[in-house]
Design a protein around this nucleic acid. Structure first.
Lengths: 159, 159
DNA sequence: TATTGTTATACTCTATAACTATA
DNA sequence: TATAGTTATAGAGTATAACAATA
């Protein structure tokens, strides 16, 4: 066996352009920029402020802890975003009657109004992207994504 | 038409758990963490240092500008990563003979060795994830991703 | 005058943990 | 003693642009 053959057998090469994590990360950056153009560019919200609003728009009333769990944010990031949203009067915070450690967070009328303005815009961008696929393809694609996501969760546990 | 019907028609709701950009961003975060466990956890490289090494591992010799284009990094981030990698003696930088503004960046022997150690590990993680799909499914999935990526590129141009 | 690459600066974001208040 | 939420602080990362060297 020649040394050339040995080399070929042992050398590993990573083709970045074909590497799934890299492709995913590029696509994610593109899409998250396209969404930020909406909530940040047009409504001047930081990403985490928009996440909190999205959580409350969907669930009406949540504690900070619930928002953290729902959005995969740290409790401290939630706290900071809540402080900002209160200043902007997009959100109100009251203490829970049963356990005063918990806070009740809700969008104000103007917060709800802004949410109602943003949602169709971001949904339109999602629709534009997914228009690349037929309905059948989209179903398949979602199924594939879910399978990979489950695998990724088991990867995280290994460490 | 009752006001309730009007409301129902006009109110928009975003289900975060079903929103494609959100699902994508979650999956991307999981996977990029899983990769960082390798290059950062085991080899103490910053993400951008690893990106530069990956570019040079694939292309042998590049200028800083080429690396920036290849990896979608800013020239300044490349410069910083290069400075670090030089300190670690994983990379050497010489001036281009034809045009001395350009630099020739190459991995050192120990840089190449580290690259050869990292690549199989990250490829193994990619393989673990993609093992969620059959070969046919993976082909389809890659095709879908490509279609959406093209759409996303046209979204970016709109602004 | 334009281009490659470096450096300076300020700014934002993040992570850790100390802290307050409630239970 | 434990939990929800806030605040302080330091460290990392980022963006802008000024800068040096070369063309």
């Amino acid at each position: 066996m020649s040394s050339k053959t040995l080399n070929t057998a042992s050398d590993s090469l990573l083709r970045l352009a074909d590497f799934f994590p890299y492709k995913l990360s590029r696509l994610n950056a593109q899409i998250s920029n396209a969404l930020a153009q909406v909530y940040s560019g047009r409504f001047d919200l930081a990403p985490q402020e928009w996440k909190v609003m999205a959580a409350l728009g969907e669930n009406r009333e949540m504690s900070a802890k619930e928002i953290a769990a729902f959005t995969s944010m740290e409790k401290m990031q939630v706290s900071r975003a809540v402080t900002e949203l209160k200043k902007l009067e997009l959100l109100v915070q009251t203490a829970d009657e049963d356990d005063r450690r918990y806070s009740c967070l809700r969008l104000t009328t103007s917060g709800e109004k802004m949410y109602q303005e943003i949602v169709p815009l971001v949904i339109a961008r999602e629709a534009f992207l997914l228009d690349a696929l037929t309905e059948d393809e989209l179903d398949q694609f979602n199924g594939f994504l879910e399978k990979i996501t489950r695998k990724a969760a088991s990867l995280e546990k290994l460490g």
